[in-house]
Design a protein around this nucleic acid. Structure first.
Length: 684
DNA sequence: GTTGCGTTTATTTTT
DNA sequence: TAAACGCAAC
């Protein structure tokens, strides 16, 4: 570690002693270097690694950070003693250790989004017997936003004239009670429940506050109110907090991030030092100037001006395409050309868009031309149904109170326990005030259920019960799971339910890779705990078989997904009003209309534009279409206001239609017609 | 439990 | 437009 390789503000941040520190790190200003150097510096000064915690938002970021710190240390093993992870993983660790004080049962589980939705649907079904259908996702998002803002069910006050807020108010508390009854927590609870125990139990709070003498937080602009509470409690003893972030890159307010945290840092933490990192090592001055100009139109920011010591670089290309197909074709063609002319590998390129559906045309075009690409995002995580089903068995075996998991498997694979039986069961359990599982076990006492069905239910509870007992005894979980699959005929069912052999094989492979990573966990942790831990990490991390190696391919991702990445050549597509800024942010809400003074807040959309521009190192293309087919109709398009905010002198305009139509070579044309004629000839 | 048909609705996504 | 959803019929 050589401090001389840092610029002045970077060094100031790294060598800052005690007390709160805010590092405002512009895009490409060496933010990660500052965090890793600072940690290394603290260790060099003799701080015990166990007294340092660094929090990030993704597991990937945490792993990378640990690795980079290790390379700076003379003694690498110190890095493994650092507390490094996401807010949620730290929250989980605290909850596990303080479980008793919290009154949480030993094997509590973490509900993921699909579990949460299932639970909410169930509550709504009971509450309103189908008198109205609700968008469950939107209710869940309101609950989540409330939790992120650290608003408890009893404090939730619905906005007037907002019926979704009203139903949320009605359901939020029930949702929370149900979670606890099922021995479950959701993602947001991993933060809020930690804050709750800190608030209720001074002994616990002081213990954790003593442990962490230095706390570092990355991507601070993405933190929410609940996380702020957690941070405050953790630093109350030593008051050594270093946060790093960029207010101009705050793009997650829609999921609870509160820019007030970073904008109000100085007031919230008196005596705070603020360091700005404005020298950019990533992009050409041309690109930076464009970025500065665009973001300069935002209010509510600290205000930074990025600068670069590089040569000005090439102008930005503003590509105007006749329609979206032409736009996609242009991007593909330009990548092929630049690859040739500048000897660039495919991985030098990225195509960034506002919403995932924009990727479709690009994908089609790339496939046609055999351009390799890697897509990030999307939802392939949730579609592995077979994996979720198997996991549900393990969850119920471990924790029969987990009613959502139980409902998932009660008739999977089909065993003749249909909707009517389940309904009768839940009704009975509700009146007897007992968990669904108990009802299943006592099925013989329930009248009006056919004997065959009763036998199915008993077989089911028997299988799950036996699994639970064997796990409890510390049996080999992988072997037990295989036994279970045998018992319930899972493989047969998958083969039967799949349209073809290949699809079935793929699903079985998914299960195999799940078992593999379970085996790995078993090597690390003993007996039953292996499974408890495995299930929790699975919700927190996703399966660790995500071996998607990017290799040498063009990156396709959303603007959101591109944060933190950089590419020599970047294409920003679809810069049109209602795409960027997105139509939804331009639309007034009911409250806006009532108050009558509506001006759309496009600040966050502008920050998205800013994030996009600052991903580019050397070449930047911003493209738009003149006409675009939307909802089946061709719609004339207006250029994005952000495009107009880029100074003209930085930009070269290119009209694409003309370029695209010309280059059909004569011999290609005649070959085409020859083939065409042949086809006609063959027809009759 | 599955299939098919009519209806509805079009962000961003991590933990 | 097209994909996702919900409901009814098998």
């Amino acid at each position: 570690m050589d401090l001389a390789t840092l610029n002045t503000p970077q060094r100031d941040a790294v060598t800052h002693g005690t007390g709160p520190l805010l590092v405002l790190a512009g895009a490409g200003s060496g933010k990660t270097r500052v965090i890793t150097f600072r940690i290394a510096q603290l260790l060099k000064q003799g701080v015990d690694p166990r007294h340092i915690a660094a929090l990030t938002f993704t597991n990937k970021a945490a792993a990378e950070m640990r690795e980079r710190v290790a390379t700076l240390l003379p003694e690498k093993s110190q890095a493994s003693k650092l507390t490094m992870g996401t807010f949620h993983s730290l929250g989980l660790n605290i909850l596990k250790q303080e479980r008793k004080a919290m009154g949480f049962p030993r094997g509590f589980v973490i509900y993921d989004t699909s579990d949460q939705l299932g639970l909410l649907r169930e509550i709504l079904r009971r509450l309103r017997n189908g008198d109205r259908k609700y968008d469950v996702k939107s209710i869940l998002s309101r609950i989540s936003l409330a939790k992120n803002a650290f608003v408890a069910p009893e404090d939730f006050s619905p906005a007037t004239f907002d019926d979704y807020d009203e139903i949320t108010a009605e359901v939020y508390g029930k949702y929370q009670t149900a979670l606890r009854n099922f021995a479950a927590v959701d993602f947001d609870d991993l933060i809020t429940e930690v804050v709750n125990i800190f608030n209720r139990n001074a002994e616990v709070r002081e213990r954790w506050a003593s442990k962490f003498r230095y706390l570092l937080v990355d991507e601070y602009q993405d933190t929410n109110k609940a996380q702020l509470h957690m941070i405050r409690a953790l630093i109350e003893k030593h008051y050594n907090l270093c946060v790093v972030g960029d207010d101009d890159q705050s793009i997650y307010s829609w999921r609870g991030a509160d820019t007030g945290n970073i904008l109000g840092f100085g007031n919230m933490f008196p005596g705070a030092k603020i360091v700005k990192l404005e020298q950019n090592y990533r992009s050409t001055p041309n690109i930076l100037e464009a970025a500065n100009a665009v973001i300069g139109n935002n209010t509510d920011r600290y205000g930074k001006t990025l600068w670069s010591a590089m040569k000005p670089g090439t102008p930005i290309t503003h590509a105007i395409a006749d329609d979206a197909n032409v736009e996609a074709r242009f991007v593909a063609q330009e990548i092929v050309n630049l690859k040739q002319e500048q000897q660039r590998p495919y991985k030098d390129f990225a195509v960034l868009y506002r919403s995932n559906k924009q990727a479709k045309l690009i994908e089609e075009e790339f496939r046609e031309r055999q351009i390799p690409y890697a897509m990030f995002g999307g939802q392939q995580f949730f579609e592995r149904r077979e994996v979720k089903d198997l996991i549900a068995y393990l969850r119920v075996a471990l924790n029969p109170r987990d009613e959502i998991a139980l409902r998932r498997i009660i008739n999977y694979p089909a065993r003749g326990i249909g909707g009517t039986t389940v309904q009768r069961l839940t009704g009975w359990c509700a009146s007897e005030r007992m968990p669904l599982w108990n009802g299943l076990v006592r099925i013989q006492e329930l009248e009006g259920v056919r004997p065959g069905t009763k036998r199915s239910v008993s077989n089911f509870t028997e299988v799950v019960n036996r699994l639970g007992i064997e796990i409890e005894r510390g049996g080999n979980v992988v072997a037990l799971t295989r036994g279970l699959m045998e018992d319930i005929g899972l493989v047969d069912d998958i083969q039967k339910a799949s349209p073809n052999f290949k699809a079935a094989q793929k699903r079985i492979d998914n299960i195999e890779s799940l078992l593999k990573s379970l085996a790995r966990q078993q090597e690390r942790t003993a007996g039953k705990d292996a499974l408890v831990e495995f299930l929790r990490l699975l919700s927190l991390d996703g399966a660790d078989d995500e071996a998607e190696e990017v290799g040498n391919s063009v990156t396709l991702t959303t603007l959101h997904g591109s944060k933190g990445l950089e590419f020599p050549v970047v294409f920003l597509i679809g810069w049109e009003e209602e795409i960027l800024p997105h139509a939804r942010t331009l639309m007034p809400t009911a409250a806006d209309i009532t108050s009558g003074d509506y001006t759309p807040d496009v600040g966050e959309e502008r920050r998205l534009a800013y994030v996009g521009i600052t991903r580019a190192q050397q070449e930047l293309y911003v493209s738009r279409s003149v006409v675009r087919i939307m909802r089946g109709k061709p719609i004339p398009r207006t250029p994005s206001r952000f495009l107009m905010e880029i100074p003209e002198e930085l930009v070269t305009e290119r009209n694409i239609a003309n370029e695209m139509e010309a280059p059909v070579k004569a011999e290609e044309l005649s070959a085409f017609f020859a083939e065409f004629a042949g086809e006609f000839a063959n027809r009759d």
